[in-house]
Design a protein around this nucleic acid. Sequence first.
DNA 1: GTGAAAGCGCTAACAC
DNA 2: GTGTTAGCGCTTTCAC
Lengths: 340, 340
Amino acid sequence: MSVTIYDVAKKAGVSIATVSRVLNKSSAVSDRTRRQVEEAIEELNYAPNFIASALTKKSTLTLGLLIPDITNPFFSELARGVEDASNDFGFNIIICNTDYSLEKEATYISLLKQKSVDGFIISTAYYNDKNIIELLKDNVPLVLLGRDIDCSEEYPMDAVVSDNIKGGYIATKHLIDLGHEKIACLLGPAKIKVNLEREKGYLKAMKEAKLKVYKEILTHGDFKLEFGYKEALRIFKGSIRPTAFVTGNDLTALGVMRALKTIGLSVPRDVSVVGYDNIILAEMSDPPLTTVNQQMQKMGYLATELLIKRIKGERNAGKKVVLDINLVVRKSTSKVPSTN
Amino acid sequence: MSVTIYDVAKKAGVSIATVSRVLNKSSAVSDRTRRQVEEAIEELNYAPNFIASALTKKSTLTLGLLIPDITNPFFSELARGVEDASNDFGFNIIICNTDYSLEKEATYISLLKQKSVDGFIISTAYYNDKNIIELLKDNVPLVLLGRDIDCSEEYPMDAVVSDNIKGGYIATKHLIDLGHEKIACLLGPAKIKVNLEREKGYLKAMKEAKLKVYKEILTHGDFKLEFGYKEALRIFKGSIRPTAFVTGNDLTALGVMRALKTIGLSVPRDVSVVGYDNIILAEMSDPPLTTVNQQMQKMGYLATELLIKRIKGERNAGKKVVLDINLVVRKSTSKVPSTN
DNA sequence: GTGAAAGCGCTAACAC
DNA sequence: GTGTTAGCGCTTTCAC
């Protein structure tokens, strides 16, 4: 059927071992034979079968990427960075949407193990993800991306995240500097560590400014637009009326803005809103969103690079990279309205 | 190292052939031996190595997905549909960002061939894509997604697209029904077939309504926001002042809206704008965008299903599926302003 | 119904 | 430097 190393060997008048040698540059071959082999390869239009070599070399040059949902812009940016790095280093990636389900994650992991992927990039980590612990136990190369877990004492682990405490802090501080005092905080699920960290940052900024923290306006939900929408409506039915919102991501922030519009409040004149992530939507919304900028593609790229170096044996596991974040000030925040 | 079929065979007291038989249900095995083997598998926690079986079976249960850029919401929606179908049928997908480059596409294709993917889902097709013709010649299973090419006479080919002529038509008709007469049309690259089709739809609607088509306001560019922005600015510097825009995708439409804002025109009061695709941005913008809704996830799902059936030999190539589209009317279009 | 053995296409000792 | 050969873990004839 398709042309194999035997065809090349025959055509070049050498053994298959020699062909393999010139293919892998694994040991010295005389210039003359090399040229013969290269010619044969050229003429036959031969390309090595990776499945066969994977079987002996135990390396597929393929990585598994686990994310909750590729249609979420945050994850598609991460995925782009991952794919770029993979491509640069000669790897490919198999992408898996887990829909935030640990069972789906587990199923994918065992499938990918059977397919002998060389490592995993995991962006789905809950605070205490058994699947990940399991992989770490088995010493499977992996890197956590965007979200990490606490177990570095037991097993060395790589992770690339951004500085979420600082993220929560600078978002809040920005609003405080604008004179806001009652600042609502709508974060993602508490079982994802980053949200706890962002809350820490929020609390730190509030405490520094000696501002009162109201439980009624500090909540955890999910990362969806609807969450922001419903929570904002709920809050404005209550007694604590914030003049500003810190949110867990840009979608939540957009939900908040939509809610404010329906109840006749203007952003930023009446209420200021800060997003998180800086996805493309953030600059597209009306008004454009002030938001905490995470370097998603860079995170994805760095994580993949780390993983590949680990796979190649160029380094050991146990490195945690924390990328810096910054605030992008657009039009959704302004000075606190004077209470006339 | 890891447990193989030999370990299972030994433990169950049978030959590896028998183990293989129960694994693949390929031929009858007595209930008694089956149970023994299943127990051994259970106890040893054995999972077959897909690489090894791929080498003999010539099937990897892996598909290649070629898209220009996963961070583009249109493609991430397609990718989601593709991944869902793959998962439902026991396949995985390797995702490749080609950045609209034919060379990058070619490189990915030969790499994936070496990795023995069972088929390709291609969403990057230019009007005359040599890489695709090459694959068709080699009889590699593939399906075109969202964009097709013209060569069905020479090689049977599968494609799942949506009805782009109708799309261009209903977008334009909607504006005509609102009383608009000077309607600008900003489409994507002419070397992508869908854009020619949408133009046809536009021209058809204009002709039916006996409206004059102005060359100055009917152009092809790309799919980016900047294109809409710059073109809209250019157009309003000229002598033909449209009261409405039909666009090639939602990003272009957002660019148009942004431009209109900067020159002090209000949407939809002064100018109406229709998008295309209905990505999440469309309902998020201000005003929310009236747009042609393509069922991206469904397209991706159907395409993958077709491909897998083809791979399994359940059908032959040569089917073109055209999905229906519809107009989602939001707030970016209204009656033509009366010329006072 | 079950086992022995050849072979998928390649790599990596091991000889020479 | 180069060839021979034994696997990698599995599927699939072909016997029995």
